[in-house]
Design a protein around this nucleic acid. Structure first.
Length: 227
DNA sequence: AACTGTACCAACCGCAATTAT
DNA sequence: TATAATTGCGGTTGGTACAGT
């Protein structure tokens, strides 16, 4: 089967996203949804391929993405599910609301995998058991397999991060219901559509609680922009 | 201060799966 | 049913920040 190239080489941008690009993508997807990722960038005024837009939205801009450190409970779930499922990151991510497969995959490769290997070493008697491997073992042993206990699907980890424990759904504050004229409104979004009030807020794990609260206020304000 | 190594994370790439015609 | 188009997934890479020398 012929494959359509992800990006043509004529002017499509690659690399890190700018705030301006984020604004355009947020504005477009919030108003019209992602009805066609391949065509979306053209209508949204973005010089990106659809794949890039999709990835950016799903892994970073999507309002219900939970950012910040993984809690112990989340790590327990990842470790246990990885033991059971292997590298099926999207399946694992489905059990961790707000976490993306990419984020989980990164966390596994950068943190959890090392602990896993250290644990294996410790168990086989190779090397000295470290405090890290001990804590990992504790995490593993404290976890009860939801399947084994016939429990309901793994509940989202108790939110220890500031993102999700305020009771306000990020998405609720961010999106609007699809309006009745959704299918009759033009898809094309003019670059000037993004109003000046739409000040960029760059969602980043580096941001602290205060900045997050600013984001929440900002998103509340955004509600009005799309009505 | 400059250099090097390491950790982390966003983004890219290619293939597989799914959907549309 | 066959083919094309689109989306989803997982592996990998590249950039950046930071710590150590």
């Amino acid at each position: 089967m012929a494959r359509t190239p992800c990006c043509d080489k004529n002017g499509l941008k690659k690399g890190s996203w700018t705030r301006e690009e984020d604004k355009k993508l947020i504005a477009y997807v919030t108003k019209y949804g992602h009805w066609n990722w391949r065509l979306l960038p053209k209508f949204a005024g973005l010089a990106r391929c659809g794949k890039s837009c999709r990835l950016r939205w799903l892994n970073y801009l999507r309002p219900d993405v939970k950012r910040g450190n993984f809690s112990d409970e989340e790590e327990e779930i990842i470790v246990r599910l990885h033991e059971k499922l292997g590298n099926r990151w999207s399946t694992i991510a489905a059990e961790l609301p707000g976490r993306t497969d990419n984020e989980i995959k990164n966390h596994w490769h950068t943190v959890l995998k090392k602990r896993f290997e250290q644990k294996a070493e410790a168990k086989s008697g190779i090397g000295k058991e470290s405090s890290i491997s001990r804590s990992f073992e504790t995490v593993s042993e404290n976890y009860s397999d939801p399947d084994a206990t016939n429990a309901s699907p793994v509940a989202p980890a108790a939110a220890t991060n500031h993102e999700s424990d305020d009771g306000l759904s990020f998405f609720d504050a961010y999106s609007e219901p699809v309006s009745a004229d959704f299918w009759t409104e033009p898809y094309l979004i003019d670059n000037s559509y993004v109003p000046p009030e739409f000040e960029p807020v760059y969602f980043s794990p580096m941001y602290d609680v205060e900045l997050w609260n600013q984001n929440e206020m900002y998103l509340q304000e955004c509600e009005g922009l799309f009505q």
